[in-house]
Design a protein around this nucleic acid. Sequence first.
DNA 1: TGACATCGGATAGTAACGCTCTCCAAACTG
DNA 2: CAGTTTGGAGAGCGTTACTATCCGATGTCA
Lengths: 204, 204
Amino acid sequence: MRLAELSERTGVSVATLKYYLREGLLHPGATVSRTQADYGDSHVERVRLVRALSEVGGLSLATVGRVLEVITTPGQDWITVLETAQRSLVRPREPGADDDGQGRASPWLQSRDWHVDPHDPFLDELDRAWLACDHAGIGLDEERMDHYADQVVGIAEIDVASVPADPEGAVRQVVLGTILLDPVLSALRKLAQQHVSMTRTQRP
Amino acid sequence: MRLAELSERTGVSVATLKYYLREGLLHPGATVSRTQADYGDSHVERVRLVRALSEVGGLSLATVGRVLEVITTPGQDWITVLETAQRSLVRPREPGADDDGQGRASPWLQSRDWHVDPHDPFLDELDRAWLACDHAGIGLDEERMDHYADQVVGIAEIDVASVPADPEGAVRQVVLGTILLDPVLSALRKLAQQHVSMTRTQRP
DNA sequence: TGACATCGGATAGTAACGCTCTCCAAACTG
DNA sequence: CAGTTTGGAGAGCGTTACTATCCGATGTCA
């Protein structure tokens, strides 16, 4: 199909598609002639994926590019995938930032016997998010975090269990699942809050 | 204290503080003279809150403004709070967008007997996020969603249980908890994935 | 064959966001 | 009383994600 048709099918303007081609987010079509290129289903899928990661996942196009690179490079091994995946997502923390002596996330997780890489960037993320809750005056103490952690393990078990054995699909599943399930769970949590508060309290 | 000291204590540049004052994100200090204003602890807290919502929560400054308005307006009733809170967060969906006949989130939740407002904007969010997962080729079927939903209810119960009875603090707690716990849970989930995959599989 | 719309590609321009810089006169400091 | 600092206002800047314009080659229909 031609660029115009690709635009129609995906609902993305031709100008934007050209932009994606320039930025390398969309692989070029087969050049039939100098002014004619042919695009296929893989292009439709790719465009939809880019939009999903950017609009729903909230990633910048630069990050989308890195993610695409990871999931189109075949043949990583099982464990490496998780790490690579996650590492490509975290915004690199600005150097020279406040270093409040490692935060409390790491010791807390150790006390729970969680096996995580002590240099995992998400430890930093957790620290910053936890600290932000403190600044906001939310009473997020270790006891409450313990409760959350128990529930989240349940979620992570679903995550891990649904990764296909197929190593080809595993990378894709893990990376995209890591990114795109966040908004799903976030929305679900808000709806659950409403459900719970409706159910537990009897409205007058 | 003066603006310069407020800047020092919060780690936010004077120029940025002035910008926040202009934008109404930071309430003006007591003007001692025409070139002297006095800022207090409430200003320090406010600045930290703005940074937390913007940096960690990922909200735009415009949204931060709306959130601040909600949590500084006293005396809403218990249930209204959740709704107002949540409504101020969701980006208004562009009109004339694709309307695929309401999506499957609503019927799915009904089949689970969840009591949620059928016009809740987070239903839309859930639809879009779910659809994005489909576009990305993740096998997110209803069965898996059921598992997630069970776990998320556990989280929501913690959320609701930790809301103080104090109606003043409740608004703040609910709104900020809704926003700022997302990144906490998100980071926690990634760490839990690692923990689970480390524990369940024996590494060679 | 020729008029003419359309194509892909390249370049430049734009709108929103979140600051940041410059200027100013009043006021505080030594 | 010289010199610095302050708060306030406005314009300017860098990034992001497009969007608009132009171009010459090409396909298409008469």
